[in-house]
Computed example of a mutant assay.
Amino acid sequence: MKSLYRVLAARQRVLAGAVTVLLMLMMSTSAHAWRYYTKLSDVLDSNGFGTLKFALDTTNLTSVLDENRVTLFAPTDDVFEATAAALGCSDALDLATRLINLQVGDTDALTAILTYHATLYTVRGKSRLLRAGSLHTVNGGSIQTGVNQGGLFVQGDANATASQITVDGISGYRWVVYPINQILLPIAPPADLCS
């Protein structure tokens, strides 16, 4: 009787071990699938960057980000609303509309600003951002990275102060998103933009 009990107990341990291994494989496969197959635009939609996603869709830039290796410095929805209020616009949609109607060189100001937030290569991790110092952006400009009293930052040419990188990046196979606390500006917007 004791030997039968031992056999049953051993089978239960083997079965429990097999179930544990199967669950671990399923979890690693689903995490693997998210990391390798999730589009950057899907991540923006579900992580507090809805305004940025809307602006990218409006300017037909979403596919550029989804089809390339990209590092994106991403202002949150709150940042867009605060910027609109500071400029005197009624909301972020009003600000985006005014920027689309403002011509800068051969493009509109919204496209120029959005393409200034991205590089067509991935920069993963704080140490690589610090080593970079200067990053070339999609619009042909450059942004500076470094550390100040607030921590890791990125700064645009027309920004009076640096944008703090507020949390570690959200990383996928072909992209990295770094949330920032202000919009990067390649050019200063006109003082009367929202008047």
Rank of each mutant, 00 (worst) to 15 (best):
M1S: 11
M1N: 08
L8Y: 05
L8Q: 07
L15E: 12
A16P: 05
A18P: 04
V19F: 03
T20V: 07
V21Q: 10
M26Y: 09
A31R: 14
A31Y: 13
R35C: 10
T38W: 00
L40I: 14
S41G: 10
G48E: 02
G48T: 07
L52M: 09
K53F: 05
K53M: 05
A55I: 08
L56N: 01
T58P: 00
L61V: 10
T62V: 13
L65R: 01
V70K: 02
F73V: 11
T76I: 00
D78L: 02
V79A: 09
F80L: 03
A82K: 09
A84R: 02
L87T: 05
L87N: 02
C89I: 12
A92P: 09
A96I: 06
T97M: 06
L99K: 01
N101C: 03
L102Q: 13
L102D: 03
Q103K: 14
D106A: 10
L110T: 06
L110A: 06
A112E: 12
A112H: 08
I113V: 15
L114A: 07
H117D: 05
Y121V: 07
Y121T: 14
V123S: 02
K126C: 04
K126D: 10
R128Q: 12
R128S: 14
L130R: 03
L130H: 00
R131F: 04
A132K: 00
G133Y: 04
L135F: 06
H136T: 15
V138S: 03
N139H: 07
G140L: 11
I143Y: 02
Q144T: 15
Q144R: 12
T145K: 01
V147G: 02
N148F: 08
N148T: 13
G151M: 07
L152R: 02
L152S: 08
F153R: 00
Q155D: 06
D157G: 01
N159Y: 04
S163L: 02
Q164H: 11
Q164K: 09
I165D: 07
T166K: 00
T166V: 14
V167C: 00
V167W: 01
D168P: 01
G169W: 03
I170W: 04
I170N: 01
G172D: 06
P179L: 01
I180R: 00
N181H: 01
Q182R: 03
I183C: 00
L184G: 07
L185M: 14
I187F: 13
I187Y: 14
A188D: 08
A188V: 12
D192H: 11
C194R: 03
